[in-house]
Design a protein around this nucleic acid. Sequence first.
DNA 1: CATCATCATACTGCATGCAATAATTTGAAG
DNA 2: CTTCAAATTATTGCATGCAGTATGATGATG
Lengths: 233, 233
Amino acid sequence: MAVKVKQDSVDRVSQICAALRRAIIERALLPGDKLPEDALGDSFGVSRTIARQALGQLAAEGLVSLRRNRKAVVATPTIEEARDTFEIRIALEALVADCLAASITPEQITELKRHVADQEVADIASEAEAIRLATDFHVLLAGMTGRPILERYVTEVAYRSGLALSAYGRPHSNDCAIEEHRKIVEALEKGDADAAAREMTGHLSAVADRAQVMTREAPPRDLATILAPFVTS
Amino acid sequence: MAVKVKQDSVDRVSQICAALRRAIIERALLPGDKLPEDALGDSFGVSRTIARQALGQLAAEGLVSLRRNRKAVVATPTIEEARDTFEIRIALEALVADCLAASITPEQITELKRHVADQEVADIASEAEAIRLATDFHVLLAGMTGRPILERYVTEVAYRSGLALSAYGRPHSNDCAIEEHRKIVEALEKGDADAAAREMTGHLSAVADRAQVMTREAPPRDLATILAPFVTS
DNA sequence: CATCATCATACTGCATGCAATAATTTGAAG
DNA sequence: CTTCAAATTATTGCATGCAGTATGATGATG
């Protein structure tokens, strides 16, 4: 009997999605980068049909933008979308923090600490991995809630945030300060829901701020206002 | 010059998605109903390829479930997924209420009142339309925030809720009490963010309760507990 | 009459091909 | 040397066909 080599087809599409998501989050793919179907198909060893389906999914997630008869491109979120994404992310991850503070197990705490330690290593070794692990930390937390839909949305919104940072953030530097992650874990370990939620929202706000995304009420760029100081007399 | 008849292809897929979403929300399609690709293609006048893409999208949204080599079916959310969906929905729509209380315009209030009036008519005339308009009310609110991502997630989660109600709710009766919608609009009209959020969360909790979904800590169905009263002596 | 194996049918998974549209190059004119 | 138009190439949009897997029917057997 032959070894079971056959892959789920749904998984073939999801695999490509996952690979592209990762490439986007790691900033190997940048907003505006073109994603031709056959190039994609060649890369992954599938036909355009499959590549196309993956692009459709990613478009639904907001990571890719499709326009008729045009090559798919990595999406460039508008500044409003970026801001909105972070605000929703804060709300959802506050839910995660609240939920976990009540239910987290010692094993999960250990796993989180290990993850943060891995981040610390990667932070020096590999920029791409550091960015990815920073996002993974949040996905890991969401997964620990055991709430499947919450996990799904947190994951999606985390990826979108990554894209927003790619578009508007400065070069990595410290998008996701490891120290802040550690504090979140500490609050969870104590079972302090308020502190956990506070650390989480503070952390995410800081990330958004670093991306200059949350600037309260984006300056309206009104010509008259700008020129006022230059008007003589 | 010929009339522009050509449709966006992305829209062809989205149109099918939209039609299926509506059929699901109106309970024309029920959890477990089969969705063969060619039957779908025939219905919409497209090939299986397109139908398949639509199914992929809907699966990503959790409305359809796909298993390799099996016909797609309308998803049957687990009770945990249903509960989770409602909890997330409450969080997101609280955001909507809060956001709108501060920014809503008189025109928007008028539009909302008209919508509620339409609901009242439909409530007597057409069960399917009543259900659809009830969901549309929430989508309409979300759209009014002008926050594109928030609108997207509220919409998605509202549809998922509809599916959950389809699976676990009793026959329509009053899933979405119109009176509760009216109170939300009133709170928004006053610009009272707290009241709006309160009415909204109360309303959604009530909807969830009617579906028997939010039963605090689903009874564990522990055999010993169940049998205890039957143990003699 | 019920149960199970075998075959026929239906359906999915995927690549490919054709038509239509955009992108790019080429070449001609200024 | 630049600019613009026409032709050429690249790419998308979509249907279809083939192979492989489930589903349902048929008939054999206990």
